[in-house]
Design a protein around this nucleic acid. Structure first.
Lengths: 152, 152
DNA sequence: ATATATCGTTGAGAAAGTCAACGATTGAAT
DNA sequence: ATTCAATCGTTGACTTTCTCAACGATATAT
């Protein structure tokens, strides 16, 4: 008999009706996942956020800092320091926007893409741990529902 | 033709593969929900966290501060100030644990239960807004998946 | 008895979030 | 053409939240 692994041990208080509160469930699962992610990404001197930015810088979508801020639900000033750090490490570059010279497009360097490729594997591993209690179908279903809630 | 409301408008960057990253999806939906929740709860001078504590204090489960900290993924010292504030407002009381006199059990006062009843309605309304793009079945499915991921 | 661990609490320092202002640049109105 | 308002990234100040180590009181194990 194999017991399913879960991220956190089931607590007595989960019986309360707040155990069905979406906000709390999101916060808890996100908190648990962040610990795993940051641990996994620490090997590459990245955190969840710098990894997210690096990922988007690798995506080919040529995001501006404003788009990064909106997409990551962060203040533009927080993007500045995150990009500063990645740029200082040579993983990312700022380029002036083509149509709008106020905007700065963030793209990954060759080195950045190399680091990202390895970090991504680590992040995927930590996601598997986080969702170990879910089957593949359930994981896909969860992602689909989250996406739908956010973007319809 | 009724267009489904979503919490955030669908962004260009959602096309990137990080748009399927569970950590990011959780963070975004939680962030969007927090804004709604705190706005709704502000009417009662509560935030997500103080509301969570008040809810558990109303639950009859007689949680200790340590249990609150574990369940809410907060540091014990953060519970202290949150309970301090609720206690100062007369919504909550500390009682010495029965079996363990080190522990403090947090229970709601009559006034606390009154406030909670009204705040709860506001919170439920804000949850409906947050998940407006999901049907009732999908909402239930989402909650079930989150619970399963956390506690198996 | 003694030692070790756990509870809530305090306080300090680090990190993250929030907000207003600025120069540069854009787009719209005249 | 020129002006005007708006937007972009950036800086700096301020608040809130996080993290951690220490402490007295209490509990548990030896």
């Amino acid at each position: 008999m194999v017991t399913q692994k879960t991220v956190v041990e089931a607590p007595r208080l989960a019986a309360a009706d707040i155990g069905n509160d979406v906000g709390l469930l999101l916060a808890k699962l996100h908190a648990a996942g962040s610990v795993l992610n940051n641990k996994a990404l620490g090997e590459f001197d990245l955190k969840e956020r710098s990894f997210s930015i690096l990922t988007l810088a690798c995506s080919g979508l040529e995001p501006t800092q404003r788009e990064l801020a909106d997409f990551l639900s962060l203040d533009p000033s927080q993007i500045v320091s995150l990009v500063d750090e990645l740029e200082g490490r040579g993983l990312v570059e700022r380029a002036t926007g083509k149509r709008d010279r106020r905007a700065k497009i963030v793209t990954a360097t060759k080195e950045g893409r190399k680091v990202h490729a390895r970090a991504r594997e680590a992040a995927e591993g930590s996601e598997r741990v986080q969702l170990a209690a879910l089957s593949e179908e359930e994981t896909a279903e969860l992602k689909a529902l989250l996406r739908k809630a956010l973007w319809g």
